Amino acid sequence: SISSRVKSKRIQLGLNQAELAQKVGTTQQSIEQLENGKTKRPRFLPELASALGVSVDWLLN
């Protein structure tokens, strides 16, 4: 799922939720909701993929 991929990649990069949120241009709460499965397809998906160094396709599939 996107939530597990985001969380595992974030941890692999040594980032906390607030640091990832800053790179993406969103809030820590938005990252938390995404990782908890409350958000399925965030509006900041391209920025998120870029910050994590992955493709949008990788996040979604």
Rank of each mutant, 00 (worst) to 15 (best):
S1L: 11
S1H: 10
S1W: 11
S1I: 12
S1V: 12
I2M: 13
I2W: 07
I2H: 03
I2Y: 04
I2K: 03
I2A: 04
I2R: 03
I2E: 03
S3R: 08
S3L: 04
S3G: 15
S3Q: 09
S3M: 08
S4A: 14
S4P: 03
S4M: 14
R5C: 05
R5N: 06
V6F: 02
V6R: 03
V6P: 02
V6L: 08
V6G: 02
V6K: 01
K7W: 06
K7D: 00
K7S: 08
S8M: 15
S8D: 10
S8I: 10
S8C: 15
S8P: 02
K9H: 05
K9N: 02
K9F: 05
K9L: 15
K9C: 12
R10L: 02
R10C: 03
R10D: 00
R10W: 01
R10K: 00
R10F: 00
I11R: 10
I11G: 06
I11P: 00
I11A: 08
Q12T: 08
Q12D: 08
Q12C: 10
Q12Y: 09
Q12V: 07
Q12L: 10
Q12E: 15
Q12N: 07
L13R: 06
L13H: 05
L13T: 03
G14M: 06
G14T: 03
G14C: 07
G14H: 07
G14A: 06
G14V: 03
L15N: 02
L15D: 01
L15M: 14
L15Y: 10
L15P: 00
N16W: 03
N16H: 07
N16S: 15
N16L: 07
Q17V: 12
Q17K: 08
Q17R: 15
Q17M: 10
Q17G: 06
A18P: 05
A18W: 14
A18Q: 12
A18C: 11
A18D: 11
A18E: 12
E19L: 05
E19M: 08
E19D: 12
E19T: 07
L20T: 02
L20I: 05
L20C: 03
L20G: 01
L20D: 02
L20V: 05
A21C: 03
A21W: 01
A21P: 02
Q22W: 10
Q22R: 13
Q22M: 12
Q22T: 10
Q22H: 12
Q22N: 10
K23G: 04
K23I: 14
K23L: 15
K23H: 07
V24Q: 01
V24R: 00
V24K: 00
V24C: 13
G25K: 06
G25I: 02
G25Q: 06
G25N: 08
G25A: 05
G25P: 08
G25E: 04
G25C: 09
G25Y: 04
T26A: 08
T26D: 04
T26M: 08
T26E: 07
T27L: 06
T27W: 04
T27C: 07
T27P: 06
T27R: 06
Q28C: 09
Q28R: 13
Q29A: 12
Q29S: 11
Q29M: 12
Q29F: 15
Q29D: 13
Q29G: 10
Q29V: 11
S30V: 13
S30I: 13
I31F: 02
I31S: 01
I31Q: 01
I31T: 02
I31M: 04
I31A: 02
E32N: 10
E32D: 10
E32T: 08
E32C: 09
Q33K: 13
Q33A: 15
Q33P: 01
Q33C: 11
L34W: 03
L34V: 13
L34A: 03
L34Q: 01
E35P: 02
E35K: 02
E35V: 02
E35N: 04
E35Q: 02
N36H: 09
N36W: 08
N36F: 08
N36E: 11
N36R: 11
G37Y: 05
G37F: 05
K38P: 07
K38C: 13
K38L: 15
K38V: 13
K38T: 15
T39K: 09
K40T: 14
K40I: 13
K40D: 12
K40L: 15
K40F: 15
R41I: 14
R41A: 11
R41N: 14
R41L: 15
R41Y: 15
P42D: 03
P42S: 07
P42C: 14
P42H: 09
P42E: 04
P42Q: 05
P42A: 09
R43P: 14
R43E: 12
R43Y: 15
R43A: 14
R43C: 11
R43T: 14
F44W: 14
F44Q: 04
F44N: 07
F44I: 05
F44K: 06
F44A: 03
F44S: 03
L45G: 04
L45M: 08
L45F: 06
L45C: 03
L45N: 01
P46Q: 13
P46F: 14
P46S: 13
P46V: 14
E47D: 10
E47W: 06
E47L: 10
E47M: 10
L48I: 07
L48V: 06
L48D: 00
L48K: 00
L48F: 02
A49Y: 00
A49Q: 01
A49T: 04
A49E: 00
A49F: 01
S50Q: 14
S50T: 12
S50N: 13
S50K: 14
S50Y: 13
S50R: 12
A51W: 05
A51L: 09
A51H: 05
A51S: 07
A51K: 04
A51I: 10
L52H: 00
L52F: 04
L52A: 00
L52G: 00
L52V: 01
L52C: 02
G53A: 06
G53I: 03
G53N: 09
G53Q: 09
G53D: 08
G53R: 07
V54Y: 02
V54G: 01
S55H: 08
S55D: 11
S55P: 09
S55A: 08
V56P: 08
V56R: 05
V56M: 12
V56N: 04
V56C: 09
D57L: 10
D57F: 12
D57T: 10
D57Y: 13
D57S: 13
D57C: 13
D57W: 15
W58A: 03
W58L: 02
W58T: 03
W58V: 03
L59P: 04
L59E: 01
L60C: 09
L60M: 11
L60H: 05
L60Y: 09
L60Q: 08
N61F: 13
N61T: 08
N61C: 11
